[in-house]
Write a protein that binds this DNA or RNA. Structure first.
Length: 370
DNA sequence: AACGCGTGGTG
DNA sequence: TCACCAAGCGT
């Protein structure tokens, strides 16, 4: 335990909050989702921003709102369209949950998002942070939205060296932020702390001399701003070899399959294949996986391309082989759906980034089957 | 509480 | 496998 311990009065914290808001008025970032107060748009933005950089989100956000301008439009759309709009953004459960929640709101709530944080957090994909963010930004509720930025800024501001991932620490940080929060301005207050975290109080080499809270920052006074917040190191990431078959029939159609809705890349399409077992040769692995998942016979040809891909929790080397369908009608044993498609038709389906690289290869390097 | 869940950017 | 990170959530 260390740091802020009620030495300062709440008055001082309130003053810090106002100083922060004054800074925000002058320096706030001009971001697309800050242009209107439409709760649906704010919701979409907050889901996209989970664990994802602002610069990455902007283009997705604009395309998504163009494609699904209203909550009703999103609810009416097929999941495949939503996943296609999410393609490449990662954490695809966000798209599935957003879609499911939109349908629920239309059916059960007459298309109106709830305004209170505790009701918002009942929506799938909306946790404590997102519920507070929507409630404060879209509905003006006094709720602290404790995200990674706020944790970092508050740990430094109050010199807190407890693990910010722990529930107790988060409760403490939230209480401190609540004491700073100017009543009725939580939306701006939350976003001010986020902008401060993004522009000044950055993870590495914070720009303390530019900080509006310079005189109040405990960690800066002690010279330990670079040591906070403390952070657990990531564990070892295992490696997997994975095979994928680009399986052609006699009419220039290639076989693609759809992954189950739960788990990694759930609901996305892929070139069928799977994990290599210890000691197994790559072509043998592909034969086995195709036999298990689709119950067809194929001829495995040349290795087309090798792709290194990094997931959060493992490394993957993906080996894509040129294959030919020999016999058997494919059955969906390990997948949700399957399709024979031409190269041009692949555009209609959502793939993960590793499989998109296979597609790029097929289009650039003149395909061997021609 | 700890882990599974994506991707691209950065020093 | 360079490590680490970015507006977290569900189980």
């Amino acid at each position: 335990m260390s740091g802020f311990d009620d030495v300062e009065a709440n008055d001082d914290l309130a003053i810090i909050g106002h100083r922060l808001l004054a800074w925000y008025e002058r320096h706030r970032r001009d971001l697309p989702w800050r242009h209107d107060q439409n709760p649906y748009a704010i919701w979409v933005a907050e889901i996209m921003l989970q664990q994802t950089r602002v610069e990455t989100v902007i283009a997705y956000y604009q395309r998504f709102l163009q494609r699904f301008p209203t909550l009703e439009a999103l609810a009416k759309a097929p999941l495949d369209d939503v996943l296609k709009a999410w393609e490449g953004l990662g954490y695809y459960a966000r798209a599935r949950n957003l879609h499911r929640a939109a349908r629920w709101v239309v059916q059960e709530m007459n298309g109106r998002l709830p305004a209170r944080s505790e009701d918002l957090s009942r929506l799938p994909g909306v946790g404590q942070y997102t519920a507070s963010a929507i409630a404060s930004i879209a509905f003006g509720q006094d709720a602290v939205a404790l995200d990674g930025n706020l944790r970092r800024v508050l740990c430094r501001l109050f010199g807190i060296d407890d693990d910010p991932g722990r529930t107790n620490t988060q409760r403490r940080l939230t209480e401190l932020a609540e004491a700073m929060l100017p009543s009725g301005q939580a939306g701006d207050f939350n976003q001010a702390l986020m902008d401060l975290g993004a522009m000044i109080c950055t993870p590495t080499t914070p720009q303390c001399l530019l900080c509006p809270l310079l005189g109040s920052c405990r960690s800066q006074q002690e010279g330990i701003q670079n040591e906070l917040p403390i952070r657990a190191t990531r564990g070892h990431r295992p490696h997997r070899d994975v095979t994928a078959g680009v399986i052609w029939d006699d009419n220039d159609h290639v076989l693609i399959t759809r992954r189950p809705l739960d788990g990694l890349l759930g609901g996305l399409w892929e070139f069928p294949g799977g994990k290599r077992r210890p000691g197994e040769a790559l072509p043998a692995c592909l034969h086995r996986e195709i036999s298990e998942e689709l119950a067809i016979q194929i001829q495995v040809g040349e290795l087309l391309v090798t792709i290194e891909h990094v997931f959060t929790h493992f490394f993957m080397t993906l080996y894509a082989f040129d294959c030919r369908w020999l016999s058997g009608s494919p059955k969906c044993l390990g997948c949700l759906d399957l399709q024979w498609v031409t190269l041009d038709e692949l555009d209609a389906y959502a793939f993960g980034v590793a499989d998109q690289k296979i597609i790029s290869f097929l289009r650039s390097d003149s395909p061997s089957h021609i």
